[in-house]
Design a protein around this nucleic acid. Structure first.
Lengths: 200, 200
DNA sequence: AATATCAGGTGACATTTGTCATTTCTTCCG
DNA sequence: CGGAAGAAATGACAAATGTCACCTGATATT
């Protein structure tokens, strides 16, 4: 019997997946969560065989949960199940070492099969992810990402300096570099580009 | 036996809902579609008792399909099933006269019940829709939205003037007004706020 | 010890952005 | 008709932004 945990913030899909997978004779859904923190806590407690994990969830995103599980060497295998084929997401998921990355645009009928494959030690990835466009690497350093994340919210240079304890000149130098790296013409466009690529 | 049609562009949810509702002893899913045009054509041909309809779909959105069905006095009842309760959507759906408006954030377990209620001549609406927060109206005029949409992509004032045939002073006045209306401190934050509220 | 490299920082500068008061020209309404 | 309301524009100003060349320490590398 394969025990499952599902983390997904859209209640209807969560419920539907749960009911459906529970019908499989060799699977049992032992827990569900609608946000990252709850998911992390429950998974550590329940140790399911496999976790289906959405990425964009409140409080803690699916990739962060997966990372934390690896850090704490939890035994549960993670399959990311997401709408987005953003380059950054996929890249990061692979680096973290998740056991599967499936798109919500795939057939549910394949899902149970994928879970069994993962249980058998294989890794499963949606074929769409093979496309090159999706593999573009994030050119931004960690600090640059942090700064751009704040800038994307509309924070001013001054507010950013206060949060990161940097001088305003330094922040502007970083933003200038970010703009250059992304081929943007100002911070707003840089934010739009990074967001669209999943680099934020 | 209640015959159903499901129109939903996220394949996994479409499949899951289909499989699940088909398990109900008194229901049968007789058709599915992943875009509006296909949905409209199939519904007219198959005349299902009830259609579950997503709003944001390619080619033709769910509200437009519902409107067209009413225009052609199709007998099928429509239940809108959508992710987010944008004020404009709900209002328009009511005007069109749909038989139900449910959020994907609701329980699937309620879904079959809702469908039966609709078959019995009642109308069903997610309770969340009564809450005021969701009724928050978009304070931006059409022109302001158009300008902010461009600004959110990082376009400069000059680029916006070129696209909308306005003077740069006018564009800046509009943006100033937008910033004021949204309580932001610059165009980037205004964009972030509008995006988060679904006003873009 | 000599030298790269890297995170930060400075200062100067040209542009862009945001704000405001004021103007012009329609259109619409009693 | 007269006035209200709207869309668009101007001009002037302070502040924020983006660019660039160059400085400073602290770690690494050889």
């Amino acid at each position: 019997m394969i025990t499952l945990f599902i983390a997904e913030d859209q209640r209807m899909l969560l419920g539907a997946l749960g009911s459906l997978l529970d019908l499989e004779p060799d699977m049992k859904v032992i827990g569900q969560a609608m946000n990252g923190e709850e998911a992390l806590a429950s998974i550590l407690e329940l140790s399911p065989d496999v976790c289906l994990m959405d990425i964009e969830m409140p409080l803690l995103n699916g990739l962060e949960v997966a990372e934390e599980l690896v850090k704490r060497s939890a035994a549960s295998k993670v399959i990311i199940l997401t709408t987005f084929a953003r380059p950054g997401y996929f890249e990061r998921a692979v680096k973290i070492g998740v056991h599967g990355y499936l798109l919500k645009d795939g057939e549910i009928d394949d899902l149970a099969g994928a879970i069994r494959k993962v249980m058998a030690g294989k890794r499963v990835f949606s074929p769409e992810l093979a496309i090159d466009v999706i593999r573009e690497e994030n050119p931004l350093t960690l600090k640059e990402q942090e700064i751009l994340r704040l800038a994307a919210l509309g924070k001013t240079t001054k507010e950013i300096t206060a949060e990161l304890y940097l001088s305003s000149g330094t922040v502007r130098n970083y933003i200038s570099e970010i703009i250059h790296k992304l081929g943007a013409k100002n911070r707003t466009e840089a934010a739009a580009i990074a967001q669209q690529k999943g680099w934020l």
